[in-house]
């Protein structure tokens, strides 16, 4: 079976879940090759990659990719010369900019924001959502090596039943002019909040303009903690500086698809819905009966969140005692 190149992002050898998701999908398409670079890629990391299906781990021996991420285009273009079945990357800002540039260099078609990738008789079949997740689109790349950027959480990462001993290959890197001219000056790795990752959480509790201030987000955090969830926010709340942008749910934030989404003081604008309307169960608390969020909510409370949420927290605590 033809190889599938999978770009694995990691920080100091810590592989995040999306990388394992890509390997899980890649296994269905062909023989996964994990491509990675940077410090911390020890035997343990390689074993992890193999456990999720990497038959080969390709290590790029260059410290330059940290500072010149556009150099990944060159790495993947070189590896793609063997005509793999596909190249899979994460549909994140970092992944998409590589996917785009790579597709032009390879003369390939490219699909982003994949929520599923399956093998098909004419190559990988990609599922995407369009127009605020109102439509489901299935598409294929028909020219060149398919370049596919997959959204985090598209699939649950599943380890292989039996261990495989991966082949290791290595290459050096001589970066081209254009990649050298894009520099990372500084990088502040985000620290874990102790709560689940927003895109991976089973429960997301989000706050909007109705919170009225940064201090009140504590109420959102308390409910998130009571439900074991992550904290999200609307753009209005983020723009007001009440919560970090990395928690923004929606068109220009992240897409979440949890089992339970709780919207507190959020009106439900189309751009917000784009990021949450595929959630399994939706709950909303809003003062305004006419707020569009109630069109989506399985259970809505028309009322003041400052009385409803504290009462809910007390009741959850009481039931758990």
């Amino acid at each position: 079976m033809a190889e599938v190149l999978v770009l694995i992002g990691h920080i100091e050898g810590q592989i995040r879940k999306p990388g394992l998701e890509l390997l899980t999908l890649a296994r269905e398409l062909g023989t996964p090759v994990a491509v990675c670079a940077g410090p911390g890629l020890d035997a343990e990391v390689i074993r992890t990659l193999a456990r999720y299906g990497a038959h080969r781990v390709h290590l790029v021996e260059s410290g330059e990719l940290e500072d010149h991420p556009v150099g990944w285009v060159q790495v993947l273009a070189d590896l793609a010369a063997t005509a793999p079945q596909a190249v899979l990357l994460e549909s994140t800002p970092e992944g998409r900019e590589i996917a785009a540039r790579l597709a032009v260099r390879l003369g390939s078609g490219v699909l982003t924001d994949a929520v599923d990738v399956r093998p098909g008789p004419e190559g990988p079949v990609v599922t995407q959502w369009a127009f605020a997740a109102g439509y489901e689109v299935t598409a294929r790349v028909v020219t060149g090596v398919p370049v596919i950027a997959v959204k985090p959480n598209a699939v649950a990462p599943v380890p292989l039943a039996e261990e495989i001993e991966p082949e290791i290959s290595r290459s050096g890197l001589d970066l081209d002019e254009a990649s050298l001219r894009t520099h990372v000056v500084s990088r502040a790795v985000r620290h874990s909040t102790g709560r689940p990752q927003l895109t991976e959480a089973e429960v997301v509790v989000s706050g909007g303009r109705g919170l009225g201030g940064a201090d009140h987000f504590e109420l959102v955090e308390r409910l998130a903690d009571a439900l074991g969830g992550a904290v999200g926010a609307s753009r209005a709340a983020v723009d007001a500086g009440w919560y970090p942008h990395t928690h923004q749910v929606g068109q220009t934030g992240v897409t979440v698809s949890p089992q339970l989404y709780v919207a507190l003081g959020i009106s439900g604008a189309i751009q917000h819905r784009a990021g949450m309307q595929t959630s399994k169960t939706i709950v909303a608390v809003n003062k305004d009966r006419e707020a569009p969020i109630f069109d989506l909510a399985d259970h809505g409370v028309v009322g003041d969140l400052f009385s409803v949420v504290p009462q809910l927290l007390d009741e959850i605590a009481r039931r758990r005692r």
């Binding site: 597709a103 390939s108 078609g109 490219v110 699909l111 079949v125 959502w129 369009a130 997740a133 109102g134 439509y135 489901e136 689109v137 299935t138 598409a139 294929r140 790349v141 028909v142 020219t143 060149g144 309307q277 939706i282 909303a284 608390v285 009966r289 109630f294 069109d295 989506l296 909510a297 399985d298 259970h299 809505g300 409370v301 028309v302 009322g303 003041d304 009385s307 409803v308 949420v309 504290p310 009462q311 809910l312 927290l313 007390d314 009741e315």
Partner: peptide, 26 residues
């Protein structure tokens, strides 16, 4: 370089209940 094989409108979510808070909403 890409083709769309199918586009289907996702079934719209059906609104559930939205109850006014009369002191017991929580």
């Amino acid at each position: 370089r890409t083709v769309v094989d199918a586009i289907t409108a996702r079934p719209p979510r059906t609104a559930g209940t939205a109850l006014p808070d009369e002191g017991e909403g929580g």
